[in-house]
């Protein structure tokens, strides 16, 4: 997060870009109230998939907050990410019911096959692995979500084949 990222990072915000317009609309709707910060960050991450520093600075300026305060909020909450996510995301639920029914085995399988730990993305940026505290779908344990599709009662042994078929990887 030093000067070097500033120069290397391609410019993301662009007044003609629809994503930027939607973000600015959300900021406008909040009337610049600092308490709207988390809601504005939700919108921003929804638009860009993550929260690059440029966006953080932009939001800080618009809501009259120090950039450090916005950065502090972004890093406090699990939901927000400073890094770009993979093209496909596999979210493994590690809630208690899923844990009791083998969520760790699923994570082990993923680590074996893709060499990915939670929070990591493959080198070609195709697949990212995330963990969820609890999806609240405990009746379907163990559950994973691949690109918004819930895969219920996943047998850990099928982890690789399911991920491959859903993400189109060979």
């Amino acid at each position: 997060m030093t000067g070097s990222t500033k120069t290397e990072e391609p410019k993301i915000l662009n007044a003609d870009d629809s994503r930027t317009k939607l973000l600015n609309a959300a900021i406008k709707k909040s009337k610049g109230r600092p308490d709207a910060l988390i809601q504005v960050l939700h919108t921003a991450q929804g638009m860009f998939g993550y929260l690059p520093l440029e966006v953080i600075r932009h939001i800080a300026h618009a809501l009259h907050l120090p950039a450090s305060r916005v950065y502090g909020v972004v890093t406090f909450y699990h939901f927000f990410s400073l890094k770009q996510k993979g093209e496909h995301t596999c979210l493994v639920c590690t809630g208690t019911a899923c844990y009791v029914k083998g969520a760790q085995e699923i994570l082990d399988q993923i680590e074996d096959h893709y060499h990915l730990k939670p929070g990591q993305v493959t080198e070609d940026n195709k697949l990212g692995i995330q963990v969820a505290r609890c999806l609240g779908a405990c009746g379907l344990a163990p559950a994973v979500v691949i690109d918004d599709e819930v895969i219920p009662k996943l047998n850990p042994e099928d982890t690789q084949s399911v991920i491959d078929s859903k993400t189109g990887a060979a």
């Binding site: 988390i38 939700h42 305060r69 909020v73 939901f79």
Partner: peptide, 21 residues
């Protein structure tokens, strides 16, 4: 935005105010 501690009422208030919970 995903923070277990926000279930605690004073942390919840901080979070609603747009701060770290």
């Amino acid at each position: 935005a995903g923070a277990f501690v926000c279930g605690e009422e004073t942390a919840l208030c901080a979070s609603i105010e747009g701060k770290r919970g």
